[in-house]
């Protein structure tokens, strides 16, 4: 099997695992989610007809009345149609609509912050590794300290200093509520302004990991014969650093992207909560607090698909930047 096919097959397997996990969790854990949901629904004035109950049961389990296999296929069928159920906390909105409203906020925030953090971390890491033995070395413990700081606490400190203290940034929210969401320059400017501090939190917390990994690989790469050869060839220092050392040193960072992305996504969920950011992380917590199980599951699924998709993209990119992987036959 070719490299690309194997990668795609792997992510399909991972996707199947996630979907199945989502199905199994509510059925294996204690508690009776369907009853809780129905009670909530009643409070909100929703119809408590058997059809509504059945919809939730497909999602969360019938408590043994239906066979597991049957429930599983009904659940897969719903997923295939994009039917994630109805949200209780945002009743009568459909889960897919709630997610559709909040997802772009998170994708833009986390996507941009991750990109900035990756470029910054890898760039600085390459430089710190290349200039080993100079004052730049002190950047390493400093940024490691930063990545040991919990995201949400860093967010609290930044808010205390930059928003409450100096008033440079808004305290919370994703945009100025007096504006109507749309593509107007005012709204985009406001969104950018509101997003700066959350993004800064994510970048500060995650840059250290990239930096350290890149720096260590750079140090290893610099003792390789091809770097020695490049120096002997009389190439300029910057060319040796970029084309020979960094080009090789960056590979493990790209290959390890999956692990790091997991951390960033986890961190950003909590960060969104601190900033009351209108993204999918805040929605997930809102769902948990309101026992909105359908929304909870839907969001987990969407986050997982987004993460898997990003990883697949990076893996395919890896095949492009390292010719050797395409010829190897080992799994992952």
């Amino acid at each position: 099997m070719g490299y690309h096919l194997r990668k795609i097959a792997f992510y399909l397997a991972a996707l199947w695992a996630a979907v199945t996990l989502n199905f199994v969790i509510p059925r294996l854990l204690p508690g009776n989610p369907v009853d809780i949901l129905m009670a909530k629904l009643q409070q909100r004035g929703g119809s408590v007809d058997p059809a509504a109950r059945q919809a939730y049961e497909t999602l969360l389990g019938t408590g043994g009345r239906e066979s597991f296999v049957r429930e599983y296929f009904a659940y897969l069928g719903n997923l295939a149609r994009g039917d994630l159920g109805v949200s209780v906390s945002a009743f009568p909105a459909k889960v897919s609509d709630v997610i559709g409203d909040s997802l772009p906020w998170t994708v833009v925030l986390v996507g941009l912050a991750t990109l900035i953090s990756f470029v910054l971390g890898v760039g600085l890491g390459a430089l710190v590794g290349w200039k080993r033995g100079t004052w730049l070395d002190s950047l390493v413990p400093a940024t490691t300290m930063l990545s040991a700081v919990p995201y949400f606490w860093l967010a609290l400190i930044l808010v205390a200093l930059l928003s409450s203290g100096l008033g440079w940034f808004p305290l919370n929210g994703g945009y100025d509520v007096v504006l109507d969401p749309g593509w107007s320059p005012e709204f985009l400017g406001s969104a950018l302004y509101h997003g700066t501090l959350p993004a800064l939190t994510i970048v500060l917390s995650s840059v250290g990991g990239w930096l350290l990994g890149m720096r260590n690989m750079m140090v290893s790469a610099m003792s390789e014969d091809y770097v020695l050869t490049a120096r002997a060839k009389g190439l300029t220092g910057s060319r040796v650093m970029v084309r020979y050392a960094a080009r090789n040193a960056v590979l493990p960072s790209v290959a390890g992207f999956a692990i790091s992305l997991g951390f960033v996504v986890s961190g950003s969920i909590v960060t969104e909560q601190v900033f009351s950011y209108p993204g999918i992380g805040s929605k997930l917590l809102q769902a948990v607090q309101n026992n909105d199980y359908a929304l909870m599951q839907g969001i987990f699924l969407v986050i997982t698909i987004a993460v898997l998709g990003a990883n697949l993209l990076v893996d395919l990119l890896y095949g492009l930047i390292d010719a050797r992987t395409r010829d190897r036959s080992t799994v992952s």
């Binding site: 397997a13 996630a18 997991g262 948990v288 997982t304 799994v331 992952s332």
Partner: peptide
Amino acid sequence: SLFSNVMLVIPGLPLVIVVAGFV
């Protein structure tokens, strides 16, 4: 190895939150 890799790419904290939400 397949199992570890699948566990690796499924984001951890959202999963923990969902599990915690059900318990």
